Simulated scan of single mutants.
Amino acid sequence: MTARSMRTYEILEKLVGFPSIVGTPNNDIVEWIAAYLSSFGIKSHVLAGPEGDRANLFATIGPVDRPGYILSGHMDVVPAGEAGWNSDPFALRADGEKLYGRGTSDMKGFLAAVLAAVPALVAAPLARPIHLAFSYDEEAGCRGVPHLLTRLPDLCLAPLGAIIGEPSGMQAILAHKGKAAARVTITGRTGHSSRPDLGLNAIHAMTEVLQASVAAAAELTNGPFEREFEPPYSSISVGTIRGGQAVNVIPDHCSLEIEARAISSAEPQTLLAPVRTVAAALTARGFEVDWQLLSAYPALLLASSSPLAALLEDLTGIEPLAAVSYGTEAGLYQQAGIDAIVCGPGDIARAHKPNEFILTSELAACQTMIEMLGQICCRQT
């Protein structure tokens, strides 16, 4: 390895070593990043979330009195308990150009490339700032970044754009669908199955919610359509259903988890409204019904003619991709009035799987992109 690539490797090794699993405290990784930035004279704003045991991090390189660009990534990773790992998922392992470990592609590789570029950015005479915005609990439906975005007006001038470094093979992405996920819980009345007239069967009641979900999903296939997406329409999918104790016991409890994926012209939670209405109507028959929103974020749709899209094409040398199926924090940046685009190292197909990896060439390409952005920020007035 060159000295440059070794620095990136060592940073990624440190980041992977923090088991910053979504939904758990993240003080260790936040404190390490803040200390690293401090060693270059960069002040970090550690922004505690309402949970009290995890935080976002925001830092600025360059002048604070001018609009600049945000490099955005999340510090959390999904659990690594699945079978099939050939090594400790929280210990970076190199095998040729492949670097294995949980979060290498999604998305500590991007964080490592950003942090490895810090010395070059600090040394550059930036005329516009580059901001680092690292969030928590993205993997739980982008729960951390909304708290960061509410603080943004106090931290910097309105940014020119945000680059969200989710794994995209270093090809910029202009659009993705929005999402809303919910858990429906029905509570009935138990009893012996020989006397169903004396109980309230929660599973039977849930079948009405399930039927409404299937009907709503079928209706969405009729449009509206946005051809850049696959499929080109919004969708609804039931992911889990749980309930019951034994075949001869009337089940008094059943829960169902459902999600909507929305094209840019649709609002994700609105897509679930017909299902919620059917669930709520069960209360008239004596059931208790609880509807819990698990996560929600809007779609992203950046015009191909936007300056940010042109900038990323210049930085990567690759024409931006129209859209992807997975979601990111980019839609929340756009909702906050900030142009956003997705571009980062790695491949989403490797994420959330055993033996997740990133290529050293992908890290190098990302670091080069960030350093080139720094050079552009030196020339902009």
Score class of each variant (00 low, 15 high):
1 M>L: 15
2 T>Q: 14
2 T>K: 12
3 A>D: 14
5 S>L: 14
8 T>A: 14
11 I>E: 00
15 L>H: 03
27 N>F: 00
35 A>K: 12
43 K>E: 12
49 G>P: 01
50 P>E: 15
50 P>N: 13
58 F>D: 03
58 F>E: 03
62 G>I: 09
63 P>Y: 07
68 G>L: 10
75 M>I: 09
77 V>M: 03
77 V>A: 03
80 A>I: 03
84 G>M: 05
86 N>A: 11
86 N>K: 08
89 P>R: 07
93 R>M: 08
103 G>P: 09
109 G>D: 02
114 V>I: 14
116 A>G: 01
122 V>L: 04
122 V>E: 04
123 A>H: 13
126 L>A: 10
129 P>C: 14
129 P>G: 10
130 I>Q: 10
131 H>G: 04
135 S>P: 04
138 E>W: 03
139 E>L: 02
143 R>M: 07
149 L>T: 04
150 T>W: 02
154 D>Q: 15
165 G>H: 09
167 P>L: 04
170 M>T: 06
175 A>P: 01
175 A>R: 10
176 H>R: 11
176 H>Y: 13
189 R>W: 06
196 P>E: 13
202 A>H: 12
204 H>L: 05
211 Q>H: 13
216 A>L: 01
223 G>F: 07
227 R>N: 11
228 E>N: 12
232 P>R: 10
236 I>K: 00
246 A>P: 02
256 L>F: 10
257 E>Y: 00
261 R>C: 14
263 I>W: 08
264 S>N: 13
266 A>L: 02
272 L>R: 01
274 P>G: 11
291 W>M: 04
292 Q>W: 03
301 L>W: 06
309 A>P: 06
319 E>R: 15
323 A>Q: 03
323 A>V: 03
324 V>Q: 10
325 S>L: 08
332 L>D: 10
334 Q>R: 13
335 Q>V: 02
338 I>V: 15
340 A>W: 06
342 V>T: 04
343 C>Y: 12
343 C>F: 12
348 I>C: 09
351 A>H: 01
356 E>A: 08
361 S>L: 00
373 L>H: 13
374 G>P: 13
376 I>S: 09
